[in-house]
Design a protein around this nucleic acid. Structure first.
Lengths: 239, 239
DNA sequence: CTTGACCTTGCCCCAGGGGCAAGGTTCGAC
DNA sequence: GTCGAACCTTGCCCCTGGGGCAAGGTCAAG
């Protein structure tokens, strides 16, 4: 006859857990000795090991209780299901590990693969970090509005970025961020941009892509980070 | 600017969780719009994804809070440690799966490997199920008293079982369980048993093995399952 | 006969949210 | 222009699976 501590050691659980199982009705309360101590039999040990195994597998105690006196077929089916669940959880852990590894890396964790590739491209093109952040945040906002549209747009934008002239315009926009709003280069940049868009917009077949300009994207994502030069550019383009 | 629901969808958490993170100080409360709704920026989204990733990895929220503004070295070290923990948990899940698979099998989950082998042997020898259960429970009780001694005893017992004469005695004890206490075969069985023990006890070198007889084992493990014939045998042996 | 290791009940506490109440708001459809 | 659905707000209580601690009673060894 075992005390609660011996039983706990045998099954690899705490005495507290055993009392908890008593309260939940999973394990029958054993007889008490003259001092009021619980005295357990080997059968309690066997049942407790079953409970421990199921509980460790993440089965809710209420369900453990049902399973303990289920017929063998039900039990077999339940075990198969629980095992499935365990496999799922291992797969989930694997995914979490992957994500964790990316936590101290780039932006892949925060944006879609396409956007992440785009951001990588921007870096190789020599785009400023500020601009990269602005883009990242812009794409995040787009994605929340409509993941499908965001996918369409990023796909188109990446194709645009293959055009050397578009890249040159993009880089000049990036540089223009810090210019004075009176900088004489701004009207010329606006002209070239307008020209480029009129030249290429006809070629674009994906109709509804009323492509948000870089400036609007940035303004939307970081209200406080507005650039006077970009504001001027926006006025020049619309006016 | 995102509502709480949009942010929640983007990060793959519930709105409730986001509010929870606000309460815990993990995520800064954003500005409210004119209706009092929270309005989030892309930076909130980025931070929330970090929080989600760490929280999913099982990091306590209090620690997540610390990690969010830790320096890169600390973060790297912490991530390595968390990843280690994740691997441990995967290994644990694997072990749990193995144990789960044994739940609908034999007794391997409840007793040591040696005892389990012994119980398997008993089955091949044609020992009754009742007797096997009695043995199993006896070994469980022994194990709780002293795992080391239990290992010594089971090793010795398994060696004894290689002796055909011992096996024959064992099987007759098993059969005798149901006999009448007046059965004339009982004194003869007691004699043969006593003779066997005096013949072999001298050969036994593991001194302190004052081998508990089968009857005592059984009586200890299942007080209610006592057999009058076995009681008689015990008296014949001691008297 | 004391000391340390047990055991007893009872109560409160934790993470990480879920559920529901009792409203106010916004948006698209008709 | 108004209606309903789907949002949002705060607040409170609830859950699992125990852990921790208090305030005792008990047992075995030196």
């Amino acid at each position: 006859m075992l005390t609660i501590g011996q039983l706990a050691d045998y099954a690899g659980v705490t005495t507290k857990a055993i009392r908890h199982y008593h309260e939940r009705g999973l394990l029958a309360e054993p007889d008490r000795d003259s001092a009021g101590y619980r005295r357990y039999t080997a059968e309690h040990a066997v049942k407790l090991v079953k409970i421990r195994t199921l509980a460790h597998a993440g089965v809710p105690l209420a369900r453990v209780k049902d399973l303990l006196d289920a017929d063998p077929d039900t039990l077999t089916a339940a075990i198969a299901e629980i095992d499935h669940d365990l496999q799922d959880r291992m797969a989930q852990l694997r995914r979490t590990r992957d994500q964790l590894a990316q936590l101290r890396g780039g932006d892949r964790l925060f944006v879609s693969a396409e956007v992440a590739d785009h951001l990588d491209d921007l870096r190789t093109f020599g785009v400023s970090e500020r601009q990269r952040l602005l883009e990242r945040d812009g794409w995040i906002l787009m994605h929340t509005a409509s993941p499908e549209d965001a996918l369409l747009w990023i796909t188109e934008k990446r194709e645009l970025m293959t055009d050397p002239e578009f890249r040159a315009l993009y880089l000049e926009y990036d540089a223009a961020y810090d210019w004075s709003p009176d900088d004489p280069r701004l009207p010329a940049l606006a002209d070239r941009t307008r020209k480029w868009f009129t030249d290429h917009h006809s070629r674009s077949e994906t109709g509804p892509v009323d492509n948000p300009t870089i400036a609007r994207l940035a303004a939307q994502s970081q209200p406080g980070a507005a650039s006077p030069a970009w504001d001027r550019l926006a006025r020049l383009m619309n006016g």
